[in-house]
Nucleic acid binder design. Structure first.
Length: 107
DNA sequence: AGATTGACGACGC
DNA sequence: TGCGTCGCCAATC
């Protein structure tokens, strides 16, 4: 692990996601220069609960625009996303393609 | 210390 | 176009 701050960087990017906008794990990993770290991003998010500053993990979904993780967690994030104006159907983001935010281009 | 799983992604068929 | 498999690195058991 050359990037001890990778986890931190992920959180930073997650916070950079505009309200009402979402991105994918791979996009973040790629933005950090670690395209193959897609899973690490996911794991980092799973560990976000222990992070002091709350991280808007709800805006981070997989390439399918699907909310992954615990059903309870999905429901919680889903609610927040809808509150931000993001339409969520079940565990998937509606119009994900339109709401997708690319950190490599916008950041 | 080692083996397994995992909140994914991309490539192949 | 859709399903299946393989590969990546790290955290957890």
């Amino acid at each position: 692990m050359n990037d001890p701050d990778f986890n931190k960087l992920v959180y930073e990017v997650a916070r950079s996601i505009p309200k009402g906008r979402v991105t994918s794990y791979g996009a973040i990993a790629k933005a950090l220069g670690k395209a193959n770290y897609s899973r690490m991003v996911g794991h980092a998010m799973g560990a976000c609960g222990r992070e002091k500053p709350p991280v808007p993990v709800q805006r981070v979904v997989n390439s399918q625009g699907q909310l992954t993780g615990e059903p309870a967690g999905i429901a919680a994030r889903k609610k927040m996303l809808e509150k931000e104006g993001v339409e969520v159907k079940g565990d998937k983001v509606v119009n994900f393609r339109n709401l997708f935010w690319d950190p490599t281009e916008e950041l």
